[in-house]
Nucleic acid binder design. Structure first.
Length: 283
DNA sequence: AGTTCAACCTGAAAGC
DNA sequence: TGCTTTCAGGTTGAAC
């Protein structure tokens, strides 16, 4: 569920809540949450015990916490993952998968995940770790290369939204912000990437950055209690959404009812008037 | 090599 | 009131 703004809100919470602290205990309550750590739960615990958290980093939707051992604790929230920093006495959550305690006896770090699509692992450190080398820089990263993105996009043989969702091309964008950015840029989700002009691609990038930045300012988008920050607080960006989840409601720009179409086993929301279907769509 | 899609899960909401 | 179906913020590996 979480996309770049939501993950960045969590990163900031981890920066405040766990950086500088030393791990004193690790409890893995569900093996699926650590399946990316191939050596298993005990090995993961061994690599964490006694280690100090040095920093809180993010690329796209991936998080990692560099440790004083040179390794890093990597996390992905999947569709329903939460990283909570809560007092040790807090009752166990229904979907608590992993908990970490610290030597200062203060708040615990808890990984809670209803659907277990997310997970954590200890990986070799890096900026970013080699384990996420396939994830492209995200559009809020100073290292993001606009020219490289535009050229790579136009070399693709796919549809515009498929490309935005491909984390190897550009990272951090998911189903909500892809639809919102395409609406802001006035582009259809099935537009063939090879026909996108440079100016259109740059306009799309402006829209992507704007919507991600505004969502971050609002603390992210929370439709339900599944997305919350490290202190359990929901984001407020839902009310600012123009198209996502608004089937049949008026387009904020022209009043035309928003359409919802099946797309990649999920949904694509768009305005039929602001985002006309291209002559030769690539679905 | 590039592109697409089923599979991985739980639970809420809608449909009958 | 149930029972069934649909849908949900994502990624990956395998098939084409």
């Amino acid at each position: 569920m979480p996309e770049l703004p939501e993950v960045e809100v969590v990163r900031r919470g981890l920066q405040r809540g766990v950086v500088g602290r030393t791990v004193s205990a690790v409890e893995v309550r569900h093996p699926r949450a650590v399946r990316r750590h191939v050596a298993g739960a005990e090995d993961l615990a061994g690599l964490l015990l006694g280690r100090r958290v040095e920093d809180a980093c993010r690329r796209g939707k991936y998080l990692w916490l560099p440790l004083d051992s040179g390794d890093a604790l990597q996390a992905h929230l999947g569709m329903s993952g939460q990283l909570l920093v809560v007092p040790a006495a807090t009752p166990v959550e229904a979907h608590l998968r992993v908990r970490l305690a610290f030597t200062d006896g203060g708040a615990e770090l808890r990984f809670v995940d209803q659907r277990t699509f997310g997970g954590i692992a200890v990986v070799a450190g890096g900026a970013p770790p080699a384990s996420i080398a396939h994830i492209a820089p995200d559009p809020l990263d100073p290292a993001f290369d606009e020219d490289a993105f535009v050229h790579a996009l136009r070399r693709r043989r796919t549809g515009l939204k498929r490309a935005l969702l491909d984390q190897r091309l550009i990272s951090g964008i998911g189903n909500i912000y892809a639809d919102e950015a395409l609406w802001r840029a006035g582009l259809h989700y099935a537009r063939a990437t090879e026909t996108v002009r440079r100016g259109e691609a740059l306009r799309l990038l402006v829209a992507v950055r704007a919507v991600l930045g505004e969502a971050l300012q609002a603390g992210g988008t929370s439709f339900d209690a599944l997305y919350v920050d490290t202190e359990g607080v929901s984001g407020r960006f839902e009310r600012a959404l123009a198209v996502y989840g608004r089937r049949g409601q008026p387009c904020p720009r022209c009043g035309t009812p928003i359409r919802r179409e099946a797309f990649m086993n999920r949904s694509a929301y768009s305005c039929p008037r602001c985002q006309p279907r291209p002559r030769r769509p690539h679905l």
